[in-house]
Nucleic acid binder design. Structure first.
Lengths: 340, 340
DNA sequence: CTCTCACCTGGCACCGTTTCCACACAGGCC
DNA sequence: GGCCTGTGTGGAAACGGTGCCAGGTGAGAG
C-alpha cells in the first residue's frame, strides 16, 4: 500500500512534483516524469481516489437511478450508460428505485447526497420538483432518460407520436377494430409513458374518424402480461380485434404466443404491432417501432459529460425527442376482407 | 454546503462531539446529541463520505463485476445484490466485464484498485489466480457467484448434478434419443458452467447405459439461440431427438417456439427440460430445474458483510453448492411408444 | 475522605492527495 | 544589462471528517 510520498521519495522529488507527473497537470520535465512513473510502477502505486476527491471535490462517479434492471429496455439503457461511463473513466453507482417510497426517499436523502457522485442519470423516473431541486442545490448535473423532466436536459422517444404512427400503420392496412394493450395509466414512477401511448393511439383513431368501443386493455409490461391479456381478448372470434397495438414488444410477443396457441393466424386474422425493437421481435416476425435504448444511455452520458467537463456553463435544459423507426415484418398485413 | 464545523458551532460543541453525536460512536449526553442533531437538520448537513473514507479507510461501497446485465440470470442476481446492499447501507458500483480483455484489465488495474470499494462480488466470472491475489493483496473481501473460485468463498448451483438430474428425469420417462442444447464449451469467462452441464448430462446417459450419437448442439444462451437450434434440429422427424435437455430456460423456450411452429407436439412428440426457473417457463409450461439467482445475490452479500463487519477473522473460503428444485410442468412426459 | 470509574467533552494529529505560491533559472527582447 | 516570460521544482496549506488522548465531572466504593 504505497502512497504518493513513497513514490516521491523513490523518485527523488517532492510530493507536488510527483503528483504533477502522474496526473499530467502542470510543468514537469520529461526526465522527471519518467523517473516518477518508474517509481510508481515499481511500487505498484495507485492514487487514492478518496483523497483526491476530498480535495478536488470531484469523485468521477455517476449515480444512476432506475426502476428495473430486469426488463429489456432498462437493462439495455443501463448497458449503454455503463459502457460510456467506463470509457470516460467514470464509475457507475447503481440505485434501483422500487415503488417503495421510503426507500426512494432514503436514496435521495441519504445516498445521493453524500458527495459521492458527481452527477445523476435518472432512467424512466418522474422526479418530483423537490427531488430535482435537491440535486440542483448540490450542483450535481442531472440528465433524464425516458421522459421529459422540467428544468433539466432529458431525452426519450416521442411516445405520443410513436403510438400514433403505429396506429396509423394499422389503419392504413384497413383495420378498424383496433385495440391497444398497454400499461397502467396511473403508474406513478414511469412518467406518463403509458398514458401518452394511449393518447397517440386515440388521436390516430379520432383523426381517422374511427371509433372503437372496448379499445384498451391493461397488461403488465412483459411477455407474460401480454400472453394473459391475449388469451383473454382473443378467445371470441366475433368480438376480437383485427389488429392490436401493443405498448411494447414484450406484450406483443405475449399476444403472439397466445394467438398461435389459439390457432389465430398472424397476420391473416390478426395484425400486431409493438414498440421497442426487442431482439425477440425479429424471431417472432413482429412489426415494431424500434428505439435504441443503449444509444439513449450513451447519449445521456454525453450530455452529462458536457455539463461535467464542458467549457460552457449553459446546460441545455431542453428535452430531446428521439425518432423511432417503423420496422415492418410479418405480423401486420392488410385486413382480410370479410367474404362479402 | 455546510460542514461538520458549522454544525458544531451552531450546536455550541466541538467538532469531535458533533462527530460522536451524529455517528453514534462514543459518549454523548442526550441533551448534547439533540442539540447537534437539531443543528444538523437546520443546516441540512450531510457527512462527506469522502472525508470519512479517507480517515477510516472504509467506503461503504461494494464493487460488482458481472459479464451481462441483459440476461435473466444476471439481472436477477444483480437485483438481489443491490437490494441487500442498500438495506445494509452500502453503495453498489457496477462494472460490466465484456470479453474485451483490455477492458477487463483496466477494470482490475485501474478501477477496482483505487481504494474505492471495500469489497468485490464477482458474478459468473472465472477470476484468474492473479486477479484474486491482487484483490486479496488489497485486503478486499471477495465473494464469487456462479462457480467455484479457489481460495475465496463462492456459491453456485451444482451444475453437474443439476444436469444429471434433468437428464435422469428424461431417462426415467423412457427417453433414449436425448440431446443437450447448451452453451459454448470453450467459453472463457463463464467458469465451466457449460462444460459442467454437459458433463452431468453425459454422466447420466452413461450411467443409464444409453449411448446417443449427435448428443449436443451449441446455442447462444437466449431464446433466439434456442429457436435457431430448434429449427435446425427438429426438422427431420426421423433423426430428431425425442427429448431435449436445454442448458437454460431461455434456450428451452426458443426450442419450444420452434417446435410449435413446426407442429411438433410437446410433450407428445418432444419432451423439453430447462434449467433456471425463468418466469416465462411457467407460461410455456416448461419443466425446469429452478434456481433462485436473487437469493444467491442476497446470500453473497451476507457472506461479504460477514467478512466486512464480522467479528471473527476467518473467512470461510469454501464453496457453497445450492440446490435446484425439479419443477415438473407440461413439457415433459413419458415417451410415446412407437406404434409397434 | 480518597480513590476509582463511568461518563462527557475538547484539542489535535492524521488520512493522502491537489494546488497555490514562492522561488530558481534560462533565453529572448528592448 | 535589466526585464519579462516560460519552465521546472519544492513547501505548505487546504479538503472534511475521525479517533486518540487528556482532562474534568460526579457518584459510589472502600
Amino acid at each position: 500500500m504505497s502512497i504518493l510520498a513513497d513514490v516521491a521519495r523513490i523518485a527523488g522529488v517532492s510530493k507536488s512534483t510527483a503528483s504533477r507527473a502522474l496526473s499530467g497537470r502542470g510543468y514537469v520535465s520529461d526526465e522527471t516524469r519518467r523517473r516518477v512513473e518508474d517509481a510508481a510502477a515499481e511500487l505498484g502505486y495507485v492514487v487514492s481516489s478518496t483523497a483526491a476527491s476530498l480535495v478536488t471535490g470531484r469523485t468521477r462517479n455517476v449515480g444512476v437511478v432506475i426502476p428495473y434492471i430486469n426488463r429489456w429496455y432498462f437493462a439495455e439503457v443501463l448497458e449503454g450508460i455503463e459502457a460510456s461511463l467506463i470509457r470516460a473513466g467514470y464509475d457507475l453507482t447503481l440505485y434501483r428505485l422500487s415503488t417503495d417510497r421510503d426507500l426512494r426517499r432514503r436514496v435521495f436523502d441519504y445516498f445521493l447526497v453524500r458527495k459521492r457522485v458527481d452527477a445523476v442519470i435518472s432512467v424512466a423516473i418522474d422526479l418530483s420538483p423537490h427531488e430535482v431541486q435537491m440535486l440542483q442545490a448540490l450542483r450535481k448535473p442531472l440528465v433524464g432518460i425516458g421522459g421529459r423532466i422540467d428544468g433539466i436536459p432529458s431525452l426519450s422517444i416521442d411516445d405520443v407520436e410513436t403510438a400514433r404512427l403505429a396506429t396509423e400503420h394499422l389503419l392504413s392496412l384497413g383495420h378498424r377494430r383496433i385495440m391497444h394493450v398497454g400499461g397502467d395509466q396511473n403508474e406513478q414512477m414511469d412518467f406518463r409513458v403509458h398514458s401518452q401511448r394511449y393518447t397517440g393511439f386515440a388521436q390516430a383513431l379520432r383523426d381517422a374518424g374511427v371509433t372503437v368501443d372496448d379499445d384498451f386493455r391493461q397488461a403488465d409490461f412483459s411477455i407474460e402480461g401480454g400472453y394473459a391479456v391475449g388469451l383473454a381478448v382473443l378467445g371470441d372470434p366475433r368480438t376480437r380485434p383485427t389488429a392490436i397495438f401493443a405498448g411494447c414488444d414484450e406484450i406483443a410477443i405475449g399476444i403472439t404466443v397466445a394467438a398461435r396457441q389459439l390457432g389465430i393466424g398472424i397476420p391473416s386474422e390478426l395484425s400486431i404491432i409493438g414498440v421497442d425493437g426487442h431482439p425477440l421481435a425479429e424471431m417472432f416476425g413482429l412489426t415494431t417501432l424500434a428505439q435504441h435504448p443503449g444509444a439513449q444511455g450513451a447519449r445521456a452520458v454525453e450530455l452529462l459529460l458536457d455539463q461535467l467537463e464542458g467549457t460552457d456553463a449553459a446546460p441545455p435544459d431542453e428535452h430531446l425527442l428521439l425518432p423511432t423507426a417503423l420496422t415492418v415484418r410479418a405480423s401486420t398485413a392488410a385486413r382480410r376482407q370479410p367474404t362479402a
